[in-house]
Design a protein around this nucleic acid. Structure first.
Lengths: 335, 335
DNA sequence: CTGTTAGCGCTTTCAC
DNA sequence: GTGAAAGCGCTAACAG
């Protein structure tokens, strides 16, 4: 096949030094010292020959692959592309490759990828794991493979073996609910899927309404998607006359809900307002555009990747941190 | 660090054979023959020790990395996640890793990734290249790195060094325009961005309207996105009274256009109909849901990855093919 | 049919 | 300061 890439040996010959010297000169982290002059010469020759290190040889020797795994439920879910991009943005800077892996939210697959990581295929992981607990990451920690979990419910552990970046869903839902209350709404329904993020989001809503002496009204459906939103709104209309505000657990549900609302001829936001969560791209495409909460997934993921890389380079040390990340309400036309 | 993974040597010792025999036994493609009994024994031991080949050692030795690059303009563009998933689907089966790379549609980055590929970082490429010509892929072909281009305008070349999977945009736009004509529309505007896919899509539209003796009316804006759609529709309304139908060059433009339409108080589809192209997820989320054309990007990308892998395994040989892929009009509520 | 040997490109002792 | 040498785990001649 013949890739004709220049090797350290080629550089060494041309620079009149040994291959070892080239290796040391080109790896500034090395303990060993080489005179600046020699280093410069080697760098010059390396450039001339268009030398690039062979990452497989390096990986074989060092057990470092220069690749990160970005593990998410589903790249086709509109919430995740921005997250993936954040990981890529950080990784590119440090010349890490990133492999994106879909778990479909299934425990089996989540564990499978952990297994691959244990085999040394990835230097670190940043990911969203729906079904895994702290203990599943212990082996990784022992092997020196850093993990950053995203979106994980914020149960900070003592001696936690991974970092955890999370948004305070509870506070976010309390805040957006309060906003509606301030606008004068008293009949506010929350719709949500079941499981996973349900608990904290519903809690936030409940806290806000109860504080204002409003009785909570919650409509749960199976899925956190458009169909779930449709079903939820239909359920609400079956049980009572339309409320004046809907707080949806995420944007997809909100959008499904809006469809039903326009079908029955109610006007948004004049007769009923709707809010979402996630700020997916479609949120500004629908009519009226959706008022929602941005979680800055891209920024969070970028920070996560930087933490991973920092740990790999020993610039970040110590126990895993659980770090709260900001959110922001995005006012658009639906509320 | 200590990854304690079993190696061929470990398996060899335990099975009482040489390491070489293990290598041969575990690689069925090998020319060499080992008695079935020995092979089975080795497989058994390998399983017991939970042996997995070290892909970096393998890569170093064979110049085969078991990874594919999936090169796209932007994972955050809603058109691409389905495509990426298709590549992943095929790759997973054959245990290839896939690295997704964003070019932002910039020639410089497209070339950069080609360069990385030439260094042997990826065994093959499937990608969407906006700014590259046939000649840019010649080196790759010589190195034995197969490439499948997606979405490339179908200029089949003799002795083409890569495969090309494309959808016949011209035919698709002619067909959807004809559909509108059949519904009785005579005042049909096309809106499009400039450059890239503009030419073929506009051609299809033109062909259909001219065949029906309708004068083409085309509104071009800079970008193929929501803003482009908004600007285009505003431009149309400035120049004439609203047409009865809009054919948009893609879904994002269609959605932008629909926003303007509802702002000025026209009803879709009663007073004006709109069609898109791509069938992005948002197409069924907007109200009314968007009639559009599905390009089955996931299936195409899956097929592309299979071709790559087929070529790597010498199951696909010969010159690069240019293959037309199907499309399908998806009738929803906007037209 | 199976084992011995060399070596892919790199990092890392260990001598000098 | 620099070089020689070993070896990461694997495949591919080559012998036997």
């Amino acid at each position: 096949m013949g890739f004709n890439n220049a090797t350290q040996k080629d550089v060494a010959v041309r620079a009149g030094v040994s291959q070892t010297t080239v290796s040391i000169a080109l790896n500034p982290e090395s303990e060993l010292n080489i005179p600046v002059k020699t280093v410069e010469k080697i760098q010059k020759v390396a450039r001339e020959l268009n030398y690039t290190p062979n990452r497989f040889a390096k990986a074989l020797r060092t057990n470092r692959t220069q690749t990160l795994a970005c593990i998410i439920p589903d790249i086709a879910n509109p919430f995740y592309p921005a997250l993936v991009k954040g990981v890529q943005r950080a990784s590119e800077i440090y010349d890490y490759d990133v492999i994106t892996l879909n778990t479909d939210g299934i425990k089996e697959k989540e564990l499978h990828y952990i297994e691959l990581a244990k085999q040394g295929r990835y230097d670190g992981l940043v990911g969203v794991f729906f079904n895994l607990e702290a203990k599943h990451f212990n082996d990784l920690a022992e092997l020196g493979i850093p993990v950053v979990r995203l979106e994980s419910n914020a149960r900070a552990q003592t001696r936690q073996s991974f970092d955890n970046l999370f948004v305070d869903d509870e506070a976010a839902f309390a805040e957006i609910t309060e906003l509606l209350i301030q606008q004068g709404h008293r009949d506010i329904c929350m719709i949500s899927g079941k499981g996973g993020p349900e608990y904290l989001r519903v809690s936030g809503y409940k806290r806000a309404v109860q504080k204002a002496n409003i009785k909570p009204f919650i409509q749960l459906e199976k899925d956190f998607n458009e169909d779930g939103g449709i079903a939820a709104m239909q359920g609400i209309l079956r049980r009572k006359t339309a409320p004046s505000a809907i707080v949806a657990a995420n944007d997809l549900m909100a959008i499904g809900c809006m469809k039903v609302i326009s079908t029955v001829g109610l006007r948004i936001p004049e007769e009923i307002v709707v809010t979402g969560f996630d700020n997916i791209p479609a949120a500004q495409l629908v009519s009226p555009s959706l008022t929602t909460i941005d979680r800055f997934q891209g920024d969070i993921a970028e920070r996560a990747a930087k933490i991973i890389i920092g740990r790999l380079n020993k610039q970040v040390i110590g126990q895993g941190q659980t770090i709260k990340q900001p959110y922001k309400i995005i006012r658009r036309n639906s509320a």
